[in-house]
């Protein structure tokens, strides 16, 4: 009963989730919920299935068993095109390798995100967002000309530009020293909070262990 009520209003709801590749179990999560606007950590060593779980949360792959719901919508049950559209609007993703589109400028990358989600262009929003992420002068720059820190902030900006209800980040701090690690996590938390988005970070970085109130520990798999 308690479970059901927790699932009802949850931003992220996982139940009985299993994911196999070639008969090998990669991931096994019984139940996990994140309330709207909350911030949570998926913590586990390499090979524990963090990225797999993130892909499942983003609707990029389909579970072998169980269900993943985002904002109350079951991802696996949606038709492919609807899932793509839902992901574009409701889920922002910051990948470990940032995957900025090199052919486009910083602002172009943000515009692309709006366009692909079939949202109207929002130049003022884009400007405000770049401002907030300390990228005000870099709108016309190419990704190749950005520093690593700038590029990561652009990736975060792109994940936020469609005002998603869920922000996912994969290993955002793995390559950073302590000072920068703190700065990036603070930035993600602040920006997610400012926009009312639920934040889920997947990481093996134990430095983040105590920063987040909610945590899912994924065990290492042999």
């Amino acid at each position: 009963m308690a479970l059901a009520s927790a699932a009802e209003g949850a931003s992220v709801a996982i139940s009985g989730l299993r994911f196999d590749i070639g008969g090998r179990r990669i991931l096994d999560v019984a139940d996990w919920f994140v309330a709207p606007g909350r911030q949570a950590l998926l913590l586990g060593p390499s090979g524990s299935g963090k990225t797999t779980l993130l892909n499942l949360l983003a609707g990029l792959s389909r579970p072998t068993a169980g269900a993943v719901a985002v904002g109350g919508r079951d991802l696996a049950g949606m038709p492919a095109a609807a899932r793509d559209r839902f992901r574009g609007r409701e889920i922002g993703i910051v990948f470990q390798s940032l995957h900025l589109v090199g052919a486009l400028s910083v602002a172009g990358n943000l515009r692309l995100a709006r366009y692909l989600a079939r949202l109207p262009a929002a130049e003022a929003d884009i400007e405000r967002l770049l401002d907030a992420l300390d990228l005000a002068g870099r709108a016309a720059a190419r990704p190749a000309d950005l520093s690593q820190g700038e590029a990561q902030r652009v990736a975060i900006a792109r994940a936020l530009v469609n005002a998603p209800s869920l922000l996912l980040a994969d290993e955002p701090t793995s390559a950073l020293d302590d000072a920068n690690c703190e700065r990036v996590v603070a930035l993600l938390r602040r920006q997610a909070a400012a926009r009312g988005a639920t934040l889920v970070i997947a990481t093996h970085d134990v430095r983040l262990k105590d920063v987040f109130p909610q945590r899912l520990d994924l065990p290492a798999r042999p």
Binding site: A80, R87, G88, I93, G102, A113, A117
Partner: peptide, 16 residues
């Protein structure tokens, strides 16, 4: 291929 995958993540349908 990363761009293409990324665009799918951003909501683009395969047809697009």
């Amino acid at each position: 291929r990363y761009d293409l995958a990324m665009m799918r993540c951003l909501g683009a349908s395969p047809a697009r």
